[in-house]
Write a protein that binds this DNA or RNA. Structure first.
Length: 467
DNA sequence: GCGGATTTAAACATTG
DNA sequence: CCAATGTTTAAATCCG
């Protein structure tokens, strides 16, 4: 089975990094129907899925079924919906129609009424290669979200267990999503190497390539034909590396996805995470491999890049130590590297830049669609993911690292409000996953997000005024 | 189109 | 000598 190059690759390599889904959609949406068309009757959306991901979810997820909608549209929706969708049972509404707009991923076309929408659906989202590809992507999205949800659920369970808080019911939010067994999922994603390193789920398979490159379509075919691939622009709009890392730590650790950060920022992060603010080259290497599944292969390449960056950037200072040389970060220099570009009025953020905001948004959307009220509370969705966004305005300086503001060179950044404006998620000002978060989590489960008083000054930023 | 930033590759030097 | 470390150059690409 061959798929159109442009549509296939985004699917196969769908990063489903929480951050890239929207962009993914854009790209797939932009994909032209390809000559190597898939015969309509022969569409096998599952094939690619199982090939494209080594997550067990791919196997466990039931094969997709092709529902025929009254309008003749083949609704190859994600497995989770089966027949339980309240939308489908409700005449006068459509699962892909809401708030006056088409909910087809990446579409958002305004439709005044259902009739118009149906017409739009039939014309714009008919059964063709593009729609098929989008459908596959959606499957991937859902699977990833399910996996992530399962993991977060498990984490929550563990947290609550640790704090002697019994959840009202076991695995409260696993069922509605047609989740793959949480046990299976968590197993598949939390396997560890003998050395304790997490087992990259995608192990020997092609890496999941983050499609964060902006508008340009980076399909794997493109990747293969292109020489040096830019994975740039990570810090410009995306959340700070520290919070992004904190929130998607497990993701990057377990998924063979290239982290959307520059080598320089990663190196710096590695160094700043240490108490001494200094690391040997080898320790930097270790940090990379420890933190990112992606860096557990192609070592020669990225290690070379690391060394290159260390030498190239003035912000990295080599210090002779008793036991050899260590590398430190000259924060002033680092800040200099990036001139203040974010001044001025609130920038409309491209969707792909709202990394975990997006992930939360997507999760929410997915969960909302699944009519799972509890999880519609942002605080219940990967609390660590919803959190930390308040750090966005602080660049990627780890919250554990004192911001070097004294030099006055800290450039203006997007304010948290600006970020949160993009996605209607109310953040909880939390960052790491290992502090007292569960308490506040419980406190906020019932609805509103309250700012725990134990937050540092970073959380003093106003958080309301969210769209 | 230009220039800065980034990535990748590679050659070379230094060091233990 | 070898591997690790460090420096430098060059090319390709992205993006403002």
């Amino acid at each position: 089975m061959c798929f159109p190059p442009l549509s296939l690759d985004p699917v196969r390599h769908v990063a489903v990094c929480p951050s890239d889904l929207q962009q993914l959609w854009k790209e797939v949406a932009a994909t032209q129907p390809v000559e190597d068309s898939i015969k309509q009757e022969g569409l096998d959306l599952t094939t690619n899925t199982s090939n494209s991901t080594s997550f067990s979810a791919a196997k466990v997820s039931p094969p997709i079924s092709h529902h025929s909608l009254p309008n003749g549209q083949s609704a190859m929706l994600t497995p989770r919906r089966d027949s339980s969708s309240s939308h489908e049972e409700n005449p006068g509404s459509h699962p892909l129609y809401g708030h006056g707009e088409c909910k087809w991923p990446g579409c958002e076309t305004l439709c005044e009424d259902l009739g118009q929408f149906v017409k739009h659906l039939n014309t714009e989202h008919a059964l063709d290669d593009r729609s098929t590809a989008q459908c596959r992507v959606q499957m991937q999205v859902v699977q990833q979200l399910e996996i992530q949800l399962a993991k977060e659920s498990e984490r929550l369970q563990a947290m609550m267990a640790h704090l002697h808080m019994r959840p009202s019911e076991p695995k409260p939010f696993s069922q509605p999503l047609n989740l793959v067994s949480s046990a299976t999922l968590s197993k598949s994603t939390s396997d560890t190497f003998p050395d304790g390193l997490p087992h990259p789920p995608t192990s020997a398979t092609a890496p999941i390539t983050p499609l964060r490159q902006g508008p340009s379509v980076i399909s794997s075919s493109t990747l293969q034909t292109m020489g040096a691939i830019r994975r740039r622009n990570p810090e410009k709009f995306c959340p700070p590396i520290s919070s992004e890392l904190a929130q998607n730590h497990e993701f990057y650790k377990n998924t063979d996805v290239r982290p959307p950060f520059t080598y320089a920022s990663l190196i710096r992060q590695a160094i700043l995470e240490t108490p001494d603010r200094q690391l040997t080259l080898n320790e930097i290497y270790n940090w990379f491999t420890r933190m990112f599944a992606y860096f557990r292969r192609n070592t020669a390449t990225w290690k070379n890049a690391v060394r290159h960056n260390l030498s190239l950037h003035k912000c990295f200072v080599r210090v002779e130590n008793v036991k050899g040389a260590v590398w430190t970060v000259d924060e002033v220099e680092y800040q200099k590297r990036r001139p203040p570009k974010m001044t001025g009025p609130a920038l409309p953020l491209p969707p792909q830049c709202c990394c975990h905001l997006l992930s939360v948004h997507l999760l929410q959307a997915a969960l909302a669609e699944s009519n799972f009220p509890l999880l519609n509370s942002p605080t219940m969705i990967n609390t660590s993911s919803t959190s930390g966004m308040l750090h966005i305005g602080h660049d990627d300086v780890s919250s554990t690292v004192e911001q070097v503001n004294s030099n006055g060179s800290n450039s203006p950044r997007l304010s948290p409000q600006q970020y949160s404006h993009q996605v209607h998620v109310k953040e909880e000002p939390a960052e790491a996953e290992d502090d007292s978060r569960p308490i506040s989590l419980m406190a906020t489960t019932n609805q509103n997000v309250t700012i725990p008083e134990d937050r540092d000054l970073e959380e003093e930023l106003p958080v309301e005024d969210l769209s």
